[in-house]
């Protein structure tokens, strides 16, 4: 039994993290928020070069996946650098299309052929609206395709409605327009959509964890150099203990995230070891989503409080992570919805 990342997975995470550290993601995030997608797409291009966009796509469609552990590792790094765009939605859409193609109709096989190689290569950035994620499609204005699940139907939407401002301006929400092309229909759509929603929640949890880690790291650095009453504020216990609690939340979300990744690897019938208190794949993902979402949100509140007024400003880059933590907390399953899933019989 091994309950830790192997060397290759650790190295992969470091590579992605270092690569993103070398790009000016705050610039890309601010441009994205204005509807200028070129710098953000350039970051996605580099993620594709590192192999990140191929992780949810099966080998049959030019991907290397599904590799949820590696995707988790990469998305934690993406969250740490606040990469903009429909990261969770693109991975979930890939799982959805691949799931429908498997044993599906000729049409669903063709849809997978059309989109999955482009997703794997980072040439297509797609988004997805489904019941589990609410009525909006994230970053529909930037996406090359807007997929919409309605009950047992999968549609390629003809476009999207007006972009609705989000608490996180870099998350651009829009409703898919009705109609378009009906890609698949039947119980298989609902089943594949449920699996895709688990992947979206898992990916969102990974992004949350990375977001929270960035907030704690930045705040610890700030508290170490900001001086009041003649000493660094980070030497005061009131400050230390708040940061320590934020870190505890994140460090205990981490094993749940990788536990969920292992559960996703073993498929719908696999999941937790029989000893675990959490039931199945859906419950494992939900547990990770609650823990990572709440921990990142706590980290955001801590970061905001310990930076004082500086943290409350738009112009200071900390705001990019603070706003994202709040938005990710409710994306693809609010804490309450996920807690109910953990206890579902």
């Amino acid at each position: 039994m091994r309950f830790m990342l192997d060397q290759a997975q650790t190295d992969f995470g470091r590579t992605v993290d270092r690569m993103l550290g070398g790009t000016d993601t705050p610039h890309a995030v601010r441009a994205w928020a204005r509807g200028e997608h070129a710098p953000g797409r350039a970051v996605w291009g580099r993620l594709a070069d590192a192999g990140v966009t191929s992780l949810a796509v099966p080998e049959a469609y030019e991907g290397v996946g599904p590799l949820p552990v590696e995707l988790g590792v990469a998305y934690v790094a993406a969250g740490r650098h606040a990469v903009p765009g429909p990261l969770a939605e693109t991975a979930a859409a890939a799982v959805l299309l691949a799931g429908l193609a498997e044993g599906g109709t000729a049409r669903s096989g063709q849809v997978a052929e059309d989109w999955l190689p482009r997703i794997a290569g980072g040439r297509a950035l797609v988004t997805l609206a489904a019941a589990d994620g609410g009525p909006y499609a994230l970053d529909a204005d930037a996406a090359d395709a807007v997929f919409a699940v309605e009950g047992e139907e999968l549609w390629l939407a003809p476009g999207h409605g007006p972009v609705q401002p989000s608490f996180d301006p870099a998350r651009r929400l829009a409703r898919p327009l009705p109609g378009g092309e009906l890609l698949a229909r039947g119980p298989a759509v609902a089943a594949a959509a449920a699996r895709a929603a688990d992947w979206a929640a898992f990916a969102t949890a990974a992004l949350s964890l990375g977001t929270g880690l960035a907030l704690v790291e930045r705040t610890a650095a700030y508290a170490g150099q900001r001086t009041q009453f003649g000493r660094p504020i980070g030497s005061f216990q009131a400050v230390k203990h708040r940061l320590a609690d934020a870190l505890i939340g994140l460090e205990f979300a981490r094993p749940l995230l990788y536990g969920a990744a292992v559960a996703l690897t073993s498929g719908p019938s696999g999941g937790a070891p029989p000893s675990g208190p959490v039931g199945d794949v859906r419950a494992e993902v939900a547990a990770a989503k609650v823990a990572a979402g709440e921990a990142a949100y706590t980290a955001a509140r801590t970061a905001l409080q310990l930076h004082g007024a500086l943290g409350y400003t738009d112009e200071y880059d900390l705001s990019l992570w603070i706003r994202k933590a709040r938005a990710l907390r409710s994306a693809w399953g609010s804490p309450s919805v996920c807690r109910a899933r953990v206890l579902a019989p």
Binding site: F252, A253, P255, A272, G276, P277, A291
Partner: peptide
């Protein structure tokens, strides 16, 4: 639910 999640997190953290 939080107790269940916490117990699972602690189990995996310890492992």
């Amino acid at each position: 639910a939080d107790a269940v999640i916490g117990a699972r997190a602690y189990e995996l953290f310890a492992c």
